[in-house]
Design a protein around this nucleic acid. Structure first.
Lengths: 191, 191
DNA sequence: ATATTTTTGTAACAAATGTTATCGTGCAGG
DNA sequence: CCTGCACGATAACATTTGTTACAAAAATAT
């Protein structure tokens, strides 16, 4: 659904640079919506500074699906590729600096680079990585208890826990914020 | 993680045919393990007849992740691409007829077809579809109650419910088989 | 046809998780 | 320096879901 991009292809920096002029650099406060659920994704979003979350709104209840930090890029893959309305809303958590690259330039870029040796393999590898990422998230949801999921996050992505407000993390873990509080206090008591 | 293959590329049937001789056709009874958790995936698996499930074993408890039916193919993408041990076990539900295509021929096939016009785009599109599939599964887990997930399955993939034993479906929905029974009886009472 | 295994339903109880409400803390904006 | 507001902890209670156990029905093997 969402995929990283720019940082995966450092050896093509000279290509990226050709597109820099088409990007719009914007400086936005916290809680700014960059892509709204129900609209068609028009930009590839690259995050220079700050912190973003993607969430799905289920009759008033927001369920966070993913977090993004410095030097990560994203697009709603489904919406981007198929011009369908996005299921997700993308919103800043902190005040952030982002670059927006309109879709038509992304398409041009893909066309330009299609013949570049190794480019296609890189794209495939990138996509495989994203797929494996979601597969693992999915399996973890099926297999692990919320406590285990919290501990996984703590060990594998401590920066998320340090930087993101706890109620967003709770919704990312699929639990209520009260329950996450309980899990945390149970863990400190165990130690 | 798992991806369909052969049925997506009918216009390349003459290519596939070149590889048919390398495939092994086997006829196996129900509950035959085709790929065991912890081993490296060595074959692309194509299902001619029957029914297969992929599951992950969590200290004795099996969690079903996906079902496959006639004319669907699969490989543990992660294990296949990266030669890592598979997280999943793949096992027949009914007695089935499957074709196994060893990985080295799949690799050869990819190399042979790499220059074929449109082939790469097709691969990318296929992978995007798989990614969107897992994304949707993932979102559904976060967003929907077990009852909603059951109803989704009932409406969108009724063949699964008709054909697969209920306790596998329960584990696919992420709930106990008792709870699925409760959901079903609650639904019939509502009607 | 009979025996055996698999699958399903249901009840009773236990554990996990959600909901609502309240309180305290810290931080951002006036 | 205040004053809200966002955030997090906790308690009490409600609901959901899991677990275990048992029985019946259905499928499969002998």
């Amino acid at each position: 659904m969402l995929f990283h991009f720019k940082d995966k292809l450092p050896q093509l920096n000279h290509y990226w640079d050709k597109y820099l002029e088409f990007q719009k650099r914007i400086d936005v406060p916290a809680k700014t919506v960059l892509l709204k659920e129900g609209t068609v994704s028009g930009n590839y979003i690259f995050l220079e500074k700050g912190c973003i979350r993607a969430y799905i709104n289920n009759n008033g209840v927001e369920k966070t699906v993913q977090f993004f930090f410095e030097n990560e890029g994203l697009a709603s893959l489904e919406s981007f590729l198929e011009n369908t309305p996005s299921l997700l809303t993308v919103e800043t958590i902190e005040s952030s600096i982002v670059y927006l690259l309109p879709k038509k330039f992304v398409n041009k870029l893909m066309a330009d680079l299609g013949s570049e040796p190794g480019f296609v393999n890189m794209i495939i590898k990138m996509m495989a990585e994203r797929q494996i990422h979601y597969m693992n998230e999915f399996v973890s949801f099926i297999r692990d208890t919320p406590e285990q999921r919290y501990l996984n996050l703590l060990h594998k992505k401590p920066h998320i826990i340090q930087r993101v407000p706890q109620h967003y993390i709770a919704s990312y873990l699929g639990i209520s914020r009260v329950h996450l509080s309980r899990i945390k206090s149970a863990l400190t008591r165990k130690k």
